[in-house]
Nucleic acid binder design. Structure first.
Lengths: 200, 200
DNA sequence: CGTCTATTTGAATGTACTCAAAAGCGGTGG
DNA sequence: CCACCGCTTTTGAGTACATTCAAATAGACG
């Protein structure tokens, strides 16, 4: 197994951060010093229900999903994360209570992790990061609100078409039955939707 | 019509902000100087589809809803806001594109408004506010994620019961048909759910 | 008291789910 | 290189959950 290309990962996250805030070289070095690269095999868990989530993770390669399991044992995907997305169980990270989500790698995946205590320190010592995450969260808020609007106002077929348009990269990399779960219906029904769409 | 009790409103918002960050007296005065009180009659609009949303609003009294109208002319409530909540069309505020949401007062309502440009200035001049809104947005993110999980994993009845538990204050003040819309089903069906629940 | 709005009811319909089975597909080992 | 295994997708029949439409009640307010 080849080693993680840390240079590539650092470069990627700096460009990502740079798109929102401006940092001095020293701030950049400090930020990078707080990050730990980690590689995950397919199906490996980054966060587990019952354990406190201690890291925020930035995806540099690969693909993950966050899901919860209901009383009947059914899995429900609440989000996916590709390259340049952040993922964690934010509720658990904030409250230091046991996670209610699993986060699982769907492929061979690499992330950069920052521990909660280091993130808090980063906020204190490099205030621009407050802005960075505020802006990221604003965008996430808008995306979630749009998603809620879709689920309360549209049919399964409409939501699927919208998803395809908005996240073509996810659709290509994630199995259908996980997309069905993300959109809130069964894999069998997604199969029918696709058949109907194809026959037009 | 009696004048707005600005002292009360300022007091309320300062306590609200204080629960997350610590400010000097001068920072508090500066913050308050950027706020404009506004009173809304029942059914009056705070944000309108087609116009750019220029303000973030903090509710000091009353109740509002944010909703979108679909192609068929149906309204869909995406959120409610009671006292001590913030509300706007964040997407429009951020991008300065025309709003896709309406925000409407459901009762006689009072808000404190801050203009986008003043909010941006506030972020530059009083960095603790970056933290304040970051924390607020983190909480909103978690709440929205939980709501998405509910809609993809639960039946209408389960979602209604959860809503009642989580937001009893909203349930008491908002008509049923708006709650049905918020939860993603029809008012007729909510009526049946309530009948079924009562008959046990 | 009358009017307007909100809620309830019921019948017919449609959308999406369940369960079981078959077909497809990709990887791995013989 | 083929055969097999496990996993994903497809199919179909029967069912359940939720909608639509229309009409009857119930409540709120002037």
């Amino acid at each position: 197994m080849q080693p993680i290309d840390t240079h590539f990962a650092h470069d990627l996250i700096l460009r990502h951060v740079d798109s929102v805030i401006t940092l001095t070289d020293e701030q950049k070095r400090y930020f990078l010093s707080l990050l730990r690269p980690r590689r995950l095999r397919r199906k490996q868990l980054l966060v587990q229900t019952g354990e406190v989530c201690r890291y925020e993770s930035f995806v540099t390669k690969g693909c993950l999903r966050a899901f919860a399991v209901d009383q009947k044992g059914q899995e429900h995907n609440v989000m996916f994360a590709l390259e340049e997305w952040w993922i964690s169980d934010l509720q658990s990270l904030l409250t230091e209570q046991p996670a209610t989500l699993y986060v699982e790698a769907l492929e061979e995946t690499e992330v950069l992790q920052i521990e909660k205590k280091d993130l808090d320190r980063l906020f204190d010592e490099v205030p621009p990061f407050e802005r960075f995450f505020r802006v990221k969260l604003q965008n996430a808020f808008v995306a979630f609100q749009n998603r809620i609007y879709s689920t309360i106002s549209q049919t399964a077929e409409e939501r699927y078409l919208e998803f395809r348009q908005r996240y073509p990269r996810i659709e290509q990399r994630v199995p259908q039955y996980m997309i069905a779960s993300f959109l809130g219906f069964t894999p069998e029904f997604l199969s029918k939707i696709r058949r109907d769409l194809a026959s037009r």
